[in-house]
Design a protein around this nucleic acid. Sequence first.
DNA 1: GTTGAGTGATGCATTTTTTGCATCACTATA
DNA 2: TATAGTGATGCAAAAAATGCATCACTCAAC
Lengths: 299, 299
Amino acid sequence: MRHLMIYDMIEAVHRSGSIRKAAEDTNITASALNRRIQTFEDEFGSEIFERLPRGMRLNPAGELLLHHIRQQRQDLARVHSQVADLSGVRRGHVKIACSQALLPYFLPREISRYRAEFPNVTFTVNVRDRIQAEQDLVNFDSDLALVFEPAHMVDFEVLHAVHQPVMALMSTAHPLAGRESLRLRDCMEYDLVLPAPQFGVRVLLDQAAAKLGRKLEPALETDSFDMVRHFAAYGQGIGFQIPVGLNTLARPDMTFVPVSERDVLGGDLYLGHLRGRTLPVAALKFAHQVATALSAARA
Amino acid sequence: MRHLMIYDMIEAVHRSGSIRKAAEDTNITASALNRRIQTFEDEFGSEIFERLPRGMRLNPAGELLLHHIRQQRQDLARVHSQVADLSGVRRGHVKIACSQALLPYFLPREISRYRAEFPNVTFTVNVRDRIQAEQDLVNFDSDLALVFEPAHMVDFEVLHAVHQPVMALMSTAHPLAGRESLRLRDCMEYDLVLPAPQFGVRVLLDQAAAKLGRKLEPALETDSFDMVRHFAAYGQGIGFQIPVGLNTLARPDMTFVPVSERDVLGGDLYLGHLRGRTLPVAALKFAHQVATALSAARA
DNA sequence: GTTGAGTGATGCATTTTTTGCATCACTATA
DNA sequence: TATAGTGATGCAAAAAATGCATCACTCAAC
């Protein structure tokens, strides 16, 4: 798409903040790039960059244009994807922003299942918290977001939602292993290993503890869900996670016990995309597969 | 926007159905145009035109692309409009598809009121029936539609709706002139002048007559609302129209009497745009003005 | 202050791309 | 079977984009 090169150039200047740096990324001379920008501004009818002594910065007009550029590029990708689908071969690239819990089991399984059928579709997966994920959609950095307990949902259009109770995880040797269900106050008798306060599971647990007039004092607090699992597996601590982040078969040395909904209500896992967007076929069909898988997993 | 020239060329070829004809419209040689199309198809990754012995026709991939082109052009117009608004001067072009009833009084008044404040905004007004209006929105041929009793409303996003009772119009000399309200069967004693069957007002009247077990037999049936008004003014016939298509001041020789809602329920006049679209500032603000005017007129 | 390293802008020669002309191969229609 | 329409293409000319060298300017460090 040679005729859209100017858009790449504008984005490059925006990213690097200077024509000279952007020129390197674009494999072009600074003078050529400079004149492309100038010519474009002439045609566009107004400047899109502020000229600062230290470089270039988008002005408000440029910000509006940038959003248009991203949107139109995404829509072109959608067209490409649909055209490929016309000829029976599904092609495309799917960008996903997701909560950490989806990383270890769920997404790898779903992606490889999908790629078994459509090997020409490639994926990008980025870990994003509840706020960043939505921002990613707005900036067209991601096609799909899969988020536990999202924050705003303003620009978020829900494709599918499933309820996720909070599960306690522990070594099979743990005194509480084998119970059908756990009360939160039972857990608090033992060492706790909790995700950092910004994560959805932690927010739910904190709220539940507050309701009991208690405060959770974790033995280990981490921003890595991997760490939570491993510490719970080898130590005597109790970790917490939602079902989609767990896999019974993969961890015979661990037990997963639901925390009673009388204490912790659980939260919702949302699959969605940017409000009003038309997804490329590849992304849309993957979303359907994920939605089906989520429903099946719950049952 | 030189870099979007290729899109104009593609549309030109699509419209004229042949490279040679399109070349004339584009002020370019057929050979140059031909090679631009070929180069584009190479970059795009698939052909977008079928080569027929009699010319070129878009293939399915081309249809998808064409829709993208129109959409992105409209979105660029939106950006331009918003950028102009940034500098305080509102610029832009507003394309309106509307029912015939809006033409004589309502739209001219609103457009000139708007242009008094924003003289740099220009307008296109096209008369479209209830089905065509929605199609216009889908093809990005119109920004706004103002339709009485729309048909599908699938791709139609409603900005505003007002109820419009059906009014009977007649010369002040007509025997029924001066009544506060009319029953449909009273009208049927006299010559009727009705719009053609596809129009909203007619549909409502036909339904009402059917409910009475009668069938309307107009003395004059026409697809021109102008004709309805004039015939009713000079002859002894009774015409029908919705309030927004009438202006008491402009026609002292005519009387407008509401038809009882016990017979004819009236219909709704909808203002809207293509579902999911972001309108240019010029169009959006005009829509607000129209919405306000419609509400005020009803009161 | 002075200096130096960074910025964007610009004149000019060179390279690349686009265009126009002439012509070919093909196909319906009369 | 002639004819008038279609798209495709080789080649030279025109136009556009690029690269190099350099200017004018700002800001931070000395």
